[in-house]
Design a protein around this nucleic acid. Structure first.
Lengths: 205, 205
DNA sequence: CTATAAACAGACCTTTTAGTCGGTTAACTA
DNA sequence: TAGTTAACCGACTAAAAGGTCTGTTTATAG
């Protein structure tokens, strides 16, 4: 298993470049040769390591995309502090990264979902699986917040999760090309406003 | 101008079919031949009426896409009743249409934005223009609501608009393939919750 | 009925693409 | 050092794509 270190290195280089280009130009609009050209590699090298373009992409999803989503959207909200603060900070950080990214083409995951939706069920399964994990993470975070007394007990955790995911997916699309920083700021303000309406009211002392 | 009735008929047929297929399969993944095959027409017919594939798509945007967005998202909120009700009903109707659409591939406009983003500035300009009109419409609707006493005067109209657009774009992506009806219901509930937090508080009588 | 132009057919060209395959180089093992 | 296999090269194929061009049909006007 350790014998194929060079193999793993090359495969990883290809996948990293592949993700970059697929993100930038789209899957169907990026050729294998585009990826290989970038790395000064040949067709032979590619098909030695991967079965097909689709297999290549599936491996990119499993190795790179999943991890990106995890580190930016899943893990940051798994703590045990105030749930709403965790989510706010998580979104804030993720959006700030997008603002400072010179080459921002929107939310990786939703971009690919849009591209493969209704066209490639195999790949859609993988992408939906990631969405599902995100949703579950959010739902359980909300429920923790309810138990911890930070969130009103009457709120529908599933509903909040769907609403949060929606707004995040959308703002990432809106932040491309048009005033990302300003839109991020406005978005975050309204998110806070929304959170006020679901947090527990400590009105009477 | 009236002399080319047949011309306009054929061009329209092509555009309608073109939009269907571009929506279904994506622009780069749909060939001119796909469109022509559907209509039993030939290459000659196509290039007699349109200069190029890109020109074809631009005309589709201007003739069909703009109107769809107008009729579903712009005009319904241009009335003078309670703004928040108008928006709720507008979103409700638009999402309900999506639920009942057998072939739903997400929000037309945002799908295309995702596809052309960073790849075709010319087309992106047209798409962003539509987004801008939507945003302006929402902003002025919010402001009407503030004047009419339905919405709290302190809310940031621009912020609300961005937040609404975000959530709508996102929910349309989420409603594809996974429990559209349930997600729509949850989304609308949370939207109402959010609206409660920005409508004017008539607490003291 | 005829001349003329609009509307369309379809073979063809060029480029691009995913994928194949026989051969070459590099690395490791005995 | 010889042999073996992993890693890679690059010419090739077949299909698909956007676009061109010549020719034919259909409608309209005089």
């Amino acid at each position: 298993m350790e014998k194929s270190l060079k193999r793993m290195t090359t495969m990883n280089r290809m996948q990293v470049t592949g993700l970059e280009l697929f993100y930038k130009n789209g899957y169907y609009n990026t050729s294998i040769d585009d990826v290989l050209k970038e790395l000064s590699l040949s067709k032979g090298a590619f098909y030695y390591h991967f079965e097909s373009k689709e297999d290549f992409f599936v491996q990119i999803i499993q190795n790179l995309l999943v991890r990106k989503v995890y580190s930016s959207l899943i893990e940051p909200i798994e703590g045990h502090e105030n749930t709403l603060d965790l989510i706010i900070n998580c979104f804030e950080d993720a959006l700030e990264t997008a603002v400072h990214n010179e080459m921002d083409y929107g939310f990786l995951l939703s971009n690919f979902i849009n591209e493969f939706n209704g066209r490639n069920p195999e790949i859609m399964q993988h992408l939906n699986e990631i969405l599902r994990i995100w949703e579950v993470t959010l739902v359980s975070a909300i429920q923790r917040g309810k138990f911890n007394g930070h969130i009103d007990r009457h709120v529908d955790a599933e509903g909040v999760a769907v609403y949060l995911m929606s707004s995040y997916i959308g703002i990432r699309t809106l932040m491309v090309e048009t005033a990302p920083s300003a839109r991020k700021y406005r978005f975050m303000s309204q998110l806070r406003q929304y959170f006020k309406s679901i947090e527990v009211k400590q009105a009477s002392f």
